[in-house]
Simulated assay, not measured.
Amino acid sequence: MEKRILMGFFALLINAHLLFGQDIQASQVPSVVINNFHKSFSNASDVEWKLQGDLFKVEFETGFLSTDHDAWYDKGGKLIEHKEEISKNDLPSAVRTTIKKDYNNYRVDDVKKVTKGKQVVYTLELKSVREELKVAFDANGKLLSKVLD
């Protein structure tokens, strides 16, 4: 049994780059991806590239307060997904209204705006004395998912 667990652990380690990405140099990223990234995020700083499966993930910061971003591009340079850290005050008013109505005793933390194509989802953590929730809302304040953390 120990041997099986050990083999599983090593298999996970070997394949971890598929889940978490393999760090790569910008010189290893296709120029079309780099060019499209610079067009979309000309003020990016602290840029780090990873290869996740067949997608190029770029982690970077923008602005005076160093807002965190993650973006995924395909090999052709198409932006597949963009995740950015935002303030709870930047949530759409409908989302803030839903939180105030349904989760009034919770503290809002780790707010992100996730864009995939034309779909925008807001993810965040809600924390109370008794529990922590990870939730996702659409721009109209509709709860899309709720997971006990």
Rank of each mutant, 00 (worst) to 15 (best):
K75W: 11
R96C: 06
P92G: 05
E61K: 07
Q22D: 13
L12E: 09
A26R: 05
G76V: 06
V108G: 05
K118P: 09
K83R: 06
D46T: 12
V111N: 01
K3M: 15
W49P: 04
L19N: 10
K118G: 11
V147D: 10
G53Q: 01
G117V: 05
K113Y: 06
D68T: 00
V135A: 04
F20S: 02
A11Y: 15
L51S: 03
W49T: 00
E125M: 05
S93A: 12
V33R: 03
G63N: 00
G21A: 06
L13M: 11
F37A: 04
I34W: 08
I34P: 07
D68M: 06
K113G: 04
N89M: 13
H17Q: 15
N104W: 14
K113H: 04
Y103N: 02
L55D: 10
L51G: 03
V95I: 04
A94F: 03
K50T: 04
Y103C: 02
S128H: 02
S27R: 07
V135G: 01
L143R: 03
E125I: 00
V121D: 08
R4P: 11
A26W: 08
D138A: 02
S31V: 10
Q28R: 07
E85Y: 07
I99H: 03
R96I: 04
Y73I: 00
I5S: 14
L13P: 04
N35Y: 13
W49L: 00
K134T: 08
V114W: 08
K88E: 13
H82A: 03
K78H: 10
N89K: 10
